[in-house]
Amino acid sequence: MDDLSLRVESGEIFGFLGPNGAGKSTTIKMLCGILLPDSGRITVEGVDLLKDPVEAKKKIGYVSDNHNVYERLTGIEFLNFMADVYQVGEADRRARIDYYLNVFGLTQAASSQIRSYSHGMKQKICIAGALVHNPALWVLDEPLTGLDPQSAFNLKEMMKEHCRQGNTVFFSSHVLEVVEKVCDRVGIISGGRLIAVGTLDELREKGTDLEQYFLQLTGTPGEAAFPPPPGQPPLPPAGWGGSR
């Protein structure tokens, strides 16, 4: 990362955009205490993550992009484990676990080991685990990849609801349409540098739409001019109406 400075307000959904290898996951990992910055400060609700990591981490719920999780535990064991680690009381634990199992359709699978879950189910149990302590800051790395349409819709609604309660959501994504629909503010990162940040309206003012602006900033060609695979005839240009 190169001199990253960013402030996200309470009650805000912040979308973090960037091409592959731009530094999105690295930023998120530093924000969650997985990686240490060489210099600088990270504060979560006023608590310095580097000076008081335990107190800061209590305020964070993290969903990784690879959904690595303790696969030998059952779904319910994992959620109880997360509730224990974050010291969630009995009543809240029961209510939240029931709620998330129900929302994600995992109630029937809760007593099975996570290793038997599908990719999407693993992702859902990770999301439920990250929310079981109702974190002030919910951080998600590429959260919508692999979710079915209903679950993706539920997740977006959940993110909005989490913010309505005064909490903050910080997520990275490649899907610009999702960012446009959900986020209050957006940051664009490229080569480890934050190159743009603002509300969607502010960004739109600088380009025709978010996609064009993103491609313009990150140096990706606006119209893909991919050469054909070896031995294949060239593809017709985009928008060309003739038959092949």
Binding site: Y70, R72, L73, I76, E77, N80, F81, A83, D84, V85, Q87, V88, G89, E90, R93, R94, I97, D98, L101, T107, Q108, A109, A110, S111, S112, Q113, S116, Y117, M121
Partner: peptide, 26 residues
């Protein structure tokens, strides 16, 4: 995974004990 209704339990414990149980099961 098989559907097992009514098997969901909510048992709380200290963080250290939760880590120990998790490790043992893993």
């Amino acid at each position: 995974w098989t559907a097992k209704a009514g098997k969901v339990e909510y048992r709380g414990s200290s963080a250290a004990r939760a880590l120990l149980k998790k490790d043992f099961k893993e």
